[in-house]
């Protein structure tokens, strides 16, 4: 079917433009909703402030404090929160409250919805990271690296990690039966992973073997390790699981989760709740 567009006839706006507009209202809605801000955005900040104040001591053989060791790992947990939890619970809510139903009834290319969600998650994740870094620098004397190579590492770990968690979150949104159960369905694995990835429990090398092995299957452990390699001196390496930052392996695991997450999204995403098809 072809349709001729007469001169002067306005066209439907493109998916990219609608995606940008959707991102704007998504960000607005996110920050106006107290639950989302409290659980998704503020929680990692509060945990860093609390654990950072509680943990004390310096690791043998280096001048890294426990709080400084915690900070980069908490950035990884923050990224997971504002991507995985944010999108997982947000999309489950959209499915429950009629958002997706309404959008399916308007002339919106489905991709505009995902562009909006992912841009929204990106904006909030950048904000989260800046907040966590700010606390680490001001309260716990974490020094920011000056070496551009370290920032390059930060860049790819951030992008791969955020993408992997975002895609997994979108896929997981369908597992929750309702918006109400989504909070539990998303937060339980998140909290368990934060422990077995050596975020809340430091240093990671001290975790019992079986938990370490389990944690190594998921992206959070690798994202945290990547961020530690950016912000901590190499003198801390003896506290890691193996005395190396393993950049190659980090990239591999995170990329694998990106691909797996994408496949899961494409195969499991549902526009409608089970009740109404």
């Amino acid at each position: 079917m072809t349709s001729t567009v007469l001169p002067g006839t306005p066209r439907r706006p493109s998916a990219a433009r609608l995606g940008l507009h959707r991102a704007a209202i998504e960000v607005k809605s996110f920050f106006r909703e107290r639950d989302a801000v409290a659980f998704t955005f503020a929680m990692p900040v509060v945990i860093l402030a609390l654990l950072g104040a509680i943990f004390d001591g310096v690791y043998p053989g280096s001048d890294v404090t426990s709080a400084q060791y915690l900070a980069p790992s908490m950035i990884a947990a923050g990224v997971a929160s504002t991507t995985f939890i944010n999108l997982g619970t947000g999309i489950a809510a959209d499915r429950d409250d009629g958002t997706l139903h309404r959008l399916r009834g308007v002339p919106m290319p489905p991709s505009a919805y995902f562009i909006g969600k992912i841009l929204m998650a990106l904006v909030i994740t950048v904000g989260e990271t800046v907040a966590l870094l700010g606390i680490a620098v001001v309260a716990f004397d974490l020094s920011l690296p000056t070496d551009p190579e370290r920032w390059l590492t930060f860049g790819w770990v951030f992008l791969l990690g955020a993408t992997a968690c975002a895609l997994t979150g979108i896929a997981a949104s369908g597992l929750a039966g309702s918006a109400r159960s989504a909070g539990a369905v998303m937060n339980l694995p998140y909290l368990v992973l934060a422990f077995i990835s050596g975020v809340f429990y430091t240093p990671v090398g001290q975790l019992p073997e079986p938990l370490l092995t389990a944690g190594s299957l998921f992206p959070l452990k690798w994202m945290a390790q990547g961020f530690r390699s950016v912000f901590l001196p190499d003198s801390i390496l003896p506290q890691e699981v193996v005395p190396s930052w393993e950049h190659g392996r980090i990239a591999l695991v995170l990329a694998a989760w990106c691909i797996g997450g994408m496949v899961l999204c494409l195969t499991t995403f549902r526009w409608r709740s089970r009740r109404s098809r």
Binding site: T9, P13, H21, I25, K28, D94, G98, T99
Partner: peptide, 21 residues
């Protein structure tokens, strides 16, 4: 429907106007 809760009436209408030619 139970969506759009955090937007204002004006924001919601202006937003949905954008989908149409």
């Amino acid at each position: 429907s139970g969506d759009l809760g955090e937007l204002t009436v004006r924001e919601a209408l202006s937003h949905f106007a954008r989908y149409y030619p």
